[in-house]
Design a binder for these strands. Structure first.
Lengths: 231, 231
DNA sequence: TGAGCGATATGACATATATCATGATTAGTG
DNA sequence: CACTAATCATGATATATGTCATATCGCTCA
């Protein structure tokens, strides 16, 4: 991890209207001056489960995973998050600790705002507080929702669901590079690495996707949708 | 569902200190006067997924389940909640709709506070707002946590985990009546009714629990803990 | 009070998924 | 550039779990 040298500000941030457009000039100055920016490379851990929450994290670019490690040392990925999502969960209001770990799955730029500053702004600007709240609760809602979707499917349906997730939510394209290893896909949808690989190979053999290493092309979108809906 | 006739107030509520002790007399009057109380019997649906959120619900006595119905009509229970837990999720701040259904699994008394009133108090009393926020985020945190615990175990471990949950979190006793059917247990821990029944029977045959209909007695707590930790 | 339905129970069998083994390929690193 | 370790890949087999069938029990309500 290293500090970013890029000159930037919340004002020019593309995600500004998601969050900061309700701040007064003074509030904005407070937030922006306390703000640090960090760059993490693929694999780097941004926060560990149990770390104290002392800042408000905001994903500027890249892709991260939220995950928890179980008692056997096996990781379970809760969600993949892209810019615009909040990383810090609601726990930041209870001044608690992280309930899961956060790692970069590709080069990722993170904004870091001191929690004391954020609290100050939140307590004086009601509109902003509500905005923060909304964005944050979305993260947990999404986790619960996707876990629900995963647990009602079996292997093929889960893989299909995951491919649709990448197609529609992450890349908005039928062609993309898998951002995570097959092992991580397994950790995300609760199945073994072997079965993940096997199922992707099967999809390829059946001609509904093409696959060259990490590069995937959704050839038969409707068929994948069908598998996601029935498997 | 029927209105409760019991004379009660937030002031004398046993859960008062969890939430209402930071209200001024005036705020308290506002909340308490808008407050309605309802009683639901076992099986009654309190809210359905998709219902608009127009009130703040608070569980006074009884036990409820939060659940979602999948595309095949199968229910998946997200959590069992007891008094002191908040039913309304954070979505109440975005004035949205329920993301899951809520049903009573035993006779349950629910306090219902008009959302407009709650918003008013929240926007003027910061301490209260934070309190509400904390209690509400706990519900989603708990759901995510328990789903994580379930998904890392297999059948026996899940049943053992569920028995420990009832023992430690719900009844605080080694002897209790199962609040839900075997089918619902399956819906909670993602397994079939048959396997749920089989596993409970096996635990009984092995002498680690006694079981007479819905009445369970944890005979060998350490053994169950062991199964929960390794299975 | 008894007809009927859901819950509990259990066995036989089918199937999904995990595990283990073994190579080939790829990516990172000195 | 070569070495090492991770990733990807696939088959054989074991195991966990689901499915289907059938029976009893015990409510609930007409």
């Amino acid at each position: 991890m290293k500090p970013s040298n890029e000159i930037s500000s919340c004002k020019t941030c593309v995600y500004r209207k998601l969050l900061f457009d309700s701040l007064t000039e003074e509030e904005y100055q407070m937030v922006n001056s306390s703000r640090k920016e960090f760059i993490y490379r693929r694999g780097e851990i941004i926060r560990r489960e149990g770390d104290p929450i002392d800042s408000f994290l905001y994903l500027r670019s890249g892709l991260i995973k939220l995950y928890k490690t179980d008692r056997n040392g096996k990781d379970h990925i809760l969600s993949l998050n892209k810019p615009g999502d909040f990383i810090s969960l609601l726990s930041i209001f209870s001044n608690s600790v992280y309930k899961y770990s956060i790692a970069a799955v590709e080069e990722t730029k993170v904004c870091d705002i001191d929690l004391v500053i954020l609290h100050k702004v939140v307590s004086t600007n009601n509109k902003f507080a509500l905005r923060v709240l909304n964005r944050m609760s979305k993260v947990s809602d999404d986790i619960i929702e996707s876990q629900f979707e995963i647990r009602q499917r079996q292997v093929k349906g889960r893989i299909a669901f995951f491919l649709l997730f990448l197609t529609n939510k992450i890349y908005r394209s039928h062609e993309f590079r898998l951002p995570i290893t097959r092992r991580e896909i397994g950790e995300l949808i609760s199945m073994t690495t072997e079965n993940t690989i096997r199922t992707l190979s099967e999809f390829k053999k059946d001609g509904i996707i093409s696959m060259e290493g990490r590069t995937i092309n959704i050839l038969d979108y409707e068929r994948i949708k069908g598998i996601s809906n029935t498997g």
